[in-house]
Computed example of a mutant assay.
Amino acid sequence: MSTSLQISLAVGGGLVLAGIVAHGAWSARKNQPKQATPPKPPAGPEPVPPQEPENPLQPPVPTLMPEPDALAGRQEPSFDIDTSLGALEQLTTPEQRKPVLDILIDAIAPVTLESPVSGEAALAAMPATRRVGSKPFAVEGVNVVGGQWEIPAAGQRYSAFQCGVQLANRTGALNPIEYSEFVVKAQSFADAVGGTPEFAEMAQEVARARELDQFSSAHDAQLGMRLRAHRTAWSPGYVQQSAASQGFVATAIAGRMVLPSGQSGHGPILGLSFDAQAAQAEDPEQTALYELAMSLDVPQVLRSEAPFARMCEIAIALASSMDGVIVDDSGNPIRPETMEAIHADLEQLYDRMDARELSAGSALGRRLFS
């Protein structure tokens, strides 16, 4: 009797212990971060269909092969490179020589010349740094061939120049000290090329800079959304795979991905980021992520790209596929009606920027909001 009781207790204890172990394993799997789906193995070669027996009444079809002499005389297509040009000429293309200065956002000093100046002389006269304080400094010349303004390049000749400094950017407005530095740099360049500069009054340009800075500050919209894990955490690989399914690509910065623009020469439409330390962990797939962030730099992206609408669509799609919740920086849920209100405000902002000829994503807009 006692033996049967002991056996029963032992069996019962074993079942309880097995249940505890199984529950622990289940809990561990439940709390493990979601993993990326392994890529499917490449498909094997297609099976070769069985060959039908040859018809003795039908002669075999000959295989056409090129004659050996024809192969020997064939040449692959190639691209000729003119190695007689100097390094500067090879590296400077017409696209890179396009003018950048514009009276809308630059203080410009014309430089008159008595005779044309070579591009080599202009390049040698350039200041060591192309900045005035925190603002970009640039020089442009009128090419004697065609009469177009362009960035000076070797191998060209110029009949006039102009020096310019940007009136405002995200660091603030051009101040009197920076304008004075601009005058010194422009005068030095003019002296080196034998030209005579003409400068606008400092008070006038500083006032223009302040007004432009006020406009840019009122229209510098940078929007963000966060996606927060609802039940189960994510691994970095799972986040990257999910984001890649929406068109994002990884960058050289750990934990940073971007949605590329479809327009040549433009920066990314959206940014996506998550914990960089998690992305660089020794075993990132065992690292738990509970949040990722999406960002839109409005003035840097063309209106035609519909960036905010795409941001909302992607956030909703990721929230659905990753079991997440869309929140703002304060952790408050962002609902569809909130997205619609933001979109309406954004359209008015676009209209004001267009009216000022500083459209979002345009060359001037990108320079001003940089």
Rank of each mutant, 00 (worst) to 15 (best):
S216I: 05
A209R: 01
Q214D: 12
Q240F: 11
R228H: 09
Y238I: 02
I253Y: 06
S261Q: 03
I253L: 13
H230F: 14
D213R: 09
G267A: 08
V206T: 11
H266G: 07
S217L: 11
S216D: 11
P260G: 06
V249T: 09
P268H: 02
G265Q: 08
Q240E: 14
G265M: 08
R210M: 04
S245Y: 07
S264D: 13
A233Q: 04
T251N: 11
S235Q: 02
A252M: 10
L227S: 07
A221Y: 14
G267H: 04
A243G: 04
G262L: 10
E205C: 00
F215K: 00
D213F: 11
A252W: 06
A252Y: 08
A207E: 11
F248R: 02
S264I: 11
Q241K: 04
P268L: 04
G255V: 03
T251E: 01
S261R: 01
E211R: 05
M225V: 14
R226Q: 13
L227E: 04
G255W: 03
A254S: 13
I253H: 08
S261N: 08
A252P: 03
Y238S: 12
E211C: 02
S264Y: 07
G262Y: 08
P260E: 07
G237V: 01
G255F: 04
A229E: 12
R228W: 07
F215V: 01
A218I: 08
Q246A: 09
G237C: 05
F248E: 01
M225R: 10
G247E: 04
H230E: 15
G267Q: 08
A221R: 14
S216A: 13
L212K: 00
G265T: 07
V258C: 02
Q222V: 11
G265D: 05
R226Y: 10
H266L: 13
Q214T: 13
V206Y: 00
G262H: 12
H230N: 14
S242V: 01
S245C: 03
M257Q: 11
D220V: 06
S216M: 15
L212T: 05
R208L: 01
A243M: 12
A250F: 10
S216P: 07
A221F: 11
G255E: 00
Q246H: 10
A250M: 14
R256N: 15
T232C: 06
R208W: 00
R226P: 07
S217N: 15
I269R: 09
F248L: 13
G265K: 00
L212Y: 02
V206D: 00
S217K: 15
G247A: 09
S216E: 10
Q214V: 10
R210D: 11
W234Q: 05
E211Y: 00
L223Q: 10
A207C: 04
Q263T: 15
A252E: 15
A244P: 05
Q214S: 15
R226G: 13
A244F: 10
S235V: 00
D220Y: 04
R208H: 07
I253P: 03
A218Y: 06
A229C: 02
R226S: 15
Q214L: 12
S242L: 06
S261E: 05
T251K: 09
F215I: 03
L223S: 09
R226A: 09
I253V: 14
A244D: 02
Y238M: 12
A221E: 12
S216Y: 02
R231M: 09
F215A: 03
A209V: 03
P260H: 04
A218C: 08
